[in-house]
Structure formats: C-alpha cells, structure tokens
Design a protein around this nucleic acid. Structure first.
Lengths: 119, 119
DNA sequence: TTGGCATATATCAGTTTCTTATATATATGA
DNA sequence: TCATATATATAAGAAACTGATATATGCCAA
C-alpha cells in the first residue's frame, strides 16, 4: 500500500507542492520539506534532493522566497519563506493545481460524457 | 473560465489519459483523441499532435495497441485499439493516475495534518 | 572505535516528455 | 480562391526530473 507515484506523473507538480507547503508553514528548510511531503503523501511521493534544491534556488532567484541561514547543532540550516510576491504566485499555482486535479478527475470518470454540464 | 492547464503540470499525464480513452472506446484515431480530450476537459487540456503521435507510435512499438488503416473521404485514418496486454497495462496506468489525483488532493487540503488516518 | 543511520545542503550527467514549428494533403463553405 | 476543418507525421529545443556523487556533523550500537 505504499506504491510510489512514478516520476513522469510527478514532473511539474513538485514546484507547486513546495509552494503550497511554504504558504501553509511560513518558514521551512529543505530537509524538512522532503520529510513533510513523504509523510503527507503516505510515502507515495518522494521529493528527492536533486529535484528539491534546484526548485528552491529557482524560487529564490525569482524573488518568490527569501532565505535565512541558521546554525543548528553545528549544521547549517537554510530556512525558506515566501515573499509577498511569492505568496501571490503561490495562490495562483495552487489554484492551477486544483484545476488540474479536478480536470483529471473528470477524465478518470468511468464513462466520461462529452459536453456534460457540471455546473 | 477556459484557462489552459500549463504544460509542465500535464507532463506525464497525457499517456495515461490516452490509454484511458482507448480503454473506454475500443477504437479511436489520433485526430479524434485530441478532439475528445479538448471537449472532456472543457478546453483546459490541449493534446497537441507533436505530443500525441509520438505517444501513439510508442504504444504501438510496445505492443500496447494495434493499428488499422482506413480510407475515409480520400484521407487516411489510422485507428488504434488496445491489445489484451495493452488493456492490462491501461488498467495499471489508470490506477496509478487515480492514486496520483488522490494524493494531490490530500496535499492540497487547506491544512494537511501529518500522519492523518484516512481509512 | 568503528560503522551505520539520521540530519543537512549541494551539483551534475543523462533521460524523458513535452512545445513549437514545419510538412503534406483533401474536402467544404464563403 | 482562400480559410478552415480534417488527418497524419517529424524534429529541434526546452524543461524537469532521476540517480549518483560529494561533503560534513551527531548519535547510537556492536
């Protein structure tokens, strides 16, 4: 019951997922984010470091997040936090992901009818 | 209300969507598939030909589908149909996509609790 | 005391999957 | 005659990952 979701499927969803977590938690560090995704998805999504850090660095370069370095137990820890601009972008990305989920749900219905009105 | 879902998000989902349609309709041709996806998704998903035909050719090469060419109004039409092996694969892919949708839905909940039991 | 696991960040070669443009060809309606 | 719909196809390039590798500390167990 812990079948991992394949990499192809995940491609493109990881960034919005990271932004969602940052929006809910105000301040998180990289390692924490991977652990959270692992737990929330019940082991079905593995956010690898090779995927995560480039995402975080890109978000910083784009002014979506700002960072704060702290030293905890002699280990460097980099906290990420959304900027006001980042919060706005986050909301957009999350809305888009929600639309995506809804649309997939329609397509996955047993016998999707063409032109069915859902309102 | 017709905001297209971005390409990044779609990446990886298109193949399972095609397999789902083939499973529900026994026999479809390429052009028909793009039109169906467009309608079912209410314009939110555009399955381009540059994406579709490589997918269909790959499915054929992998023994997931067999093809039949027909001539309709002097235009060649290539019908695609799942093989028994393809039907099995289809069911797997669709299940995986369903898992994916469910998992994303959990992650998108307003304040996802860690370790929440969903059974 | 030594080896392994958890913690913590980081980079990079290679793969896959798409987009966008291009090509070809017929039928139909304005 | 010209645009649009129908129908299939390929290819260069971009983007987002995986999986490997690197570095370093703290802690626990054999």
């Amino acid at each position: 019951m812990k079948n991992k979701i394949s990499a192809e499927l995940l491609k493109g969803s990881l960034k919005p997922i990271v932004m969602k977590l940052l929006k809910e938690n105000t301040r998180m560090y990289g390692y924490e984010i991977t652990q959270r995704v692992e737990k929330l998805s019940q082991g079905k999504i593995s956010l690898t470091y090779g995927a995560l850090y480039p995402i975080l660095h890109k978000l910083e370069a784009d002014g979506i997040v700002i960072t704060e370095q702290e030293n905890v137990n002699n280990r460097t820890r980099v906290y990420y936090q959304l900027t006001p601009k980042g919060t706005k972008k986050s909301i957009e990305k999350i809305n888009e992901l929600e639309e995506f989920v809804k649309t997939l749900a329609i397509l996955l219905k047993p016998n999707p009818s063409v032109g069915l009105c859902t309102t």
